[in-house]
Structure formats: C-alpha cells, structure tokens
Amino acid sequence: MNTNHIIIKMVLDRWYGSVTNFNKILDSLSDNQLQKEIAPGKNRGIYLLGHLIAVHDDMLILLDMGEKLHPELNEPFIKSPDKTAIAIPSAPELRSFWAKQCDVLQQKFSNLNTDEWFAKHTAVSAEEFANEPHRNKLTIIITRTSHLQYHSGQLVLLK
C-alpha cells in the first residue's frame, strides 16, 4: 500500500467512524427529542439533521458524483435559519433521507480511485488548483468530517 492509499484510508476511516458515531447518537434520540433546541434560542435537533443532509447532498456536486438527492432541503436547511421555513420534512422522513444518503455516498466513495481523490473538486478552477493542489476531493471529506463531528457534539446535548 503506497502513501496515497494510506492517506485515503485514514481520511475515509475517520469519515465512516464519524458517520457511525452520528448514527448512534441519532438512533438514541426520539423524534420528540429532535424537536428540542440544542440550547435556549439555538437550533433544534431536527434542523441539524436536515442541515447535515443538505450539506452532504452538496458533496455530490462538489465531488462531481452526480446530482443532489434532496435539492429541496437547501432552502430550509442551508439558506434559512431554523424555525423560519414554513414546512420541513418530518423527523422520520429526514432519518430515511439520511440513511439513504449515507449509503449513496459510501457507494460513490468506493468507486473513486486514488488519482480521483487527489483531483480538484468542482468549486475550484483549474488555474486555482494548479496553484493549490490541496484543494482536492479528499479535502472535502476532511472538512465535512469535522462539520459532522461538530454537529454530532451538539446533538448529544438533546439527551
């Protein structure tokens, strides 16, 4: 196994470990608990779940892996603050969206070869990438892993 394979394995192991941890937290919370605010005046758990789905949906575009699964979640969970959208999907619907999205991402990730992981993502131009080769697809996984871990820590507060 060469160094690039090891790096990819390390990053993806942390990603999958973070998803597993999030799933344990999510599974430990009832739909009613997801309706609670993390802290007074802060986001609700259901909003954080929808937000993570919408952000991970964006990864499909950033990694050039296809279209979003749930583009309808962008407005209420990325562009709008919690409690401002007229209607959002129910907790059971969002749980289902999350599970499906995790499966799709895992399948898409498993199809990328080493060179593809180190290729540019779609939010960077060829010129920028030539000067900043660290702005690659693997970096997207690193930043999204940190984002997922941050919100996992918030969800724990609902217990």
Rank of each mutant, 00 (worst) to 15 (best):
F77H: 05
G66D: 09
F97R: 03
S80Q: 14
H56M: 13
S96G: 15
G41N: 12
K68I: 09
Q107N: 06
C102N: 02
I46P: 01
A85S: 14
P92A: 12
N113A: 07
N111R: 04
H51F: 07
L73W: 07
L105S: 01
I88R: 03
D115I: 07
I46V: 13
I46F: 03
G41M: 08
L69I: 10
Q101D: 01
N74Q: 13
G50W: 02
I46W: 03
Q106R: 00
K83P: 11
N43H: 15
G41D: 12
S80W: 05
I53D: 00
G41H: 11
E67K: 11
L112C: 11
D103H: 02
N113V: 12
A85D: 07
R95V: 13
E72V: 14
M65Q: 13
P92I: 14
L49E: 04
F109P: 02
I53A: 03
K83W: 13
F97W: 05
Y47G: 02
V104G: 01
A87P: 05
L63W: 06
P89S: 05
R44W: 11
M65I: 08
H56N: 15
Y47K: 06
A54H: 03
G66W: 06
C102M: 07
S96P: 10
R44E: 09
E67N: 12
L94D: 03
L112M: 15
K79R: 14
W98C: 00
Q106M: 01
N113W: 08
P89T: 03
K100A: 05
H56E: 12
I78N: 12
V104T: 09
S90L: 10
I61T: 13
G45M: 03
Y47L: 10
